[in-house]
Write a protein that binds this DNA or RNA. Structure first.
Length: 256
DNA sequence: ATGCCCGCTTACAGCGGA
């Protein structure tokens, strides 16, 4: 099974690129982030025409997550516990093909310090609380998404330029590590332990042309999923195309 | 030091993104 995560940066603006990517790479499951549309605005007919079912947790203008799948998926939950007044559409979880899969859009947190950074850290604590419940199930789980965390200085082309950014603050990294150490495997680094492994290149300042990227899209595997890990990668070539998202799709293959 | 670029909005400028 191939499971991918893809921050599309607006599904309506990206529809042609997205269906092209689905057709060319045929993931069994695709976790999307930043669809930037409400449920009723989701281009379901186009996704179905590409051969996929969809579970959608949308929001007007910003955020929004979805799980696309060849097999029909069963929704398990929308949103995280712990902050009932939080209406940002950033989490959806489903059962599909014998796996539990979540599509995660973790808050950016800039500028830091400030209320947005505080929200990011609170959200990460809420995710940690859900992740430990999922580990306890002892089933194959894939937590896939845009974590907005650069886990280490090896995960960014120019760490000095981003030193004050919320994505690489010690608190952000510690919160990410606290989740990983529950027993999750960072699948991309498991398969590619060293070297550049970017998943995002800013639209600004020629970041793509300079290959000045960083790694923020992650797939965390429960032990039962990690036992089945055979490959992982980044669909970098699609980032070079016209009207591409600023993120590249990132994926794992699990043995059946 | 700031903005660069991009998508979105009862839009035509401002916000959020990373």
């Amino acid at each position: 099974m191939k499971i991918a995560t893809y921050n599309v940066n607006g599904i309506r603006a990206r529809l042609e690129r997205l269906t092209e990517w689905l057709t060319e790479t045929r993931p069994d499951v695709a976790c999307l982030q930043e669809i930037k549309c409400q449920n009723e605005g989701f281009p379901l007919a186009d996704i179905e025409a590409a051969g996929y079912h969809a579970l959608v947790h949308g929001q007007k203008g910003f955020n929004g997550v979805a799980i696309l799948s060849k097999q029909r998926a069963e929704s398990v939950r929308i949103g995280l516990d712990g902050e009932p007044e939080d209406e940002m559409a950033r989490y959806i979880e489903a059962d599909v093909g014998g796996l539990r899969v979540a599509s995660i859009y973790l808050p950016n947190g800039n500028p830091q310090p400030g209320p947005k950074f505080d929200y990011k850290l609170r959200w990460m604590e809420r995710l940690r609380a859900r992740a430990v419940e999922l580990i306890a199930l002892e089933i194959p789980v894939v937590l896939a998404g845009d974590y907005n965390v650069i886990p280490s200085d090896a995960d960014i082309a120019n760490p000095k330029a981003m030193a004050d950014d919320a994505l690489m603050q010690p608190e952000s990294r510690a919160a990410f590590r606290r989740i990983c150490t529950q027993g999750w495997t960072d699948a991309l680094r498991q398969i590619h332990p060293t070297g550049p492994l970017w998943t995002f290149w800013d639209y600004q300042a020629g970041a793509w042309q300079r290959d000045a990227g960083f790694r923020i899209d992650h797939l965390l595997l429960s032990p039962e999923a990690a036992d089945r890990l055979v490959d992982a990668g980044v669909d970098k070539d699609h980032r070079a195309r016209e009207k591409a998202s600023d993120h590249a799709a990132t994926w794992v293959v699990l043995r059946n």
